[in-house]
Amino acid sequence: MSETAQVTEEHIQGSQKKPKATRDAYGETLLELGRKRSDVVALDADLSCSTKTGKFAKEFPDRFFNMGIAEQDMVGTAAGLALSGKIPFASTFAVFETGRAWDQIRLVVCYSNTNVKLVATHGGITVGEDGASHQALEDIALMRALPNMTVIVPADAAETASVINTIVDYKGPVYVRLGRAKVPYVMPEDYQFKLGKAFVFHIGKDANIVAAGITVDMAKKAAGILSQEGIDTGVVNMSTIKPLDEETLLRVAESSKIIVTAEEHSIIGGLGGAVCEFVSEHCPVPVKRIGTLDTFGCSGNPDALLNLHGITVGNIVDTIKASLKK
């Protein structure tokens, strides 16, 4: 099975395809879905140029609803559209989608269990220069705490397309977190996203890195470096953060001396939190969480910010080495 395959050249080197932002893949996939299915509708809160729902809007003006700068109303309207049998994709920046409209998501999406797809872009600190007000570092925690909610963070443009094509056929609330920045292709060519199923590049006997989103690329690079130094390091793309792929995580934990989680999110309540919650109850093994600490972001270019918060290949490598030495 590909899940336990050895690290191949492609896994370490990555794809030769040019990096692409996950939000671009979303815009294109939503447009294709619109062409295939008349029940797909889209909503945005005055950010359709940035979230890329604008492509869908241009071709299907009757099925696109710009709600203006009114996220709460957007989520409520999306729920209503879902209750009329439509499949609404509602998009804005992650910080506004999950923060401004949290109670709406709670009541008329999750509690009412409506078929609303919340696809947010500009997640994490790679939003960059706009600064803390625009950097969602708590969105996964906010969404993960809600019953009925599914939470997905795709790693690259291809996985994003696969995710969007998958969730359109899943009935129920889904939150998909996408990014602003271009990201390299990290998943194998033949990869297909499966809801609730992690993708295992390799399970290491020493350390394993559980990542999601942009950190999957870092994890692969870190594992390559560590493996060359004789530290058998595995990499798991946990793109579905909720429901967590507990079966895979258990296998990973059983094989690990240490697990490192890496995410572009607060270490509180996100992927790191989810992994700790599960591992501590079912297979206690030391877990180190890499992500933003209990702090807000700030302005800066994305790479500088990733460095500042230690969300880097180097920090993953160092964290694993330091932990194994103890």
Partner: peptide, 8 residues
Amino acid sequence: SVANGMAL
């Protein structure tokens, strides 16, 4: 808001 969505 939900009523609007249903109506649309």
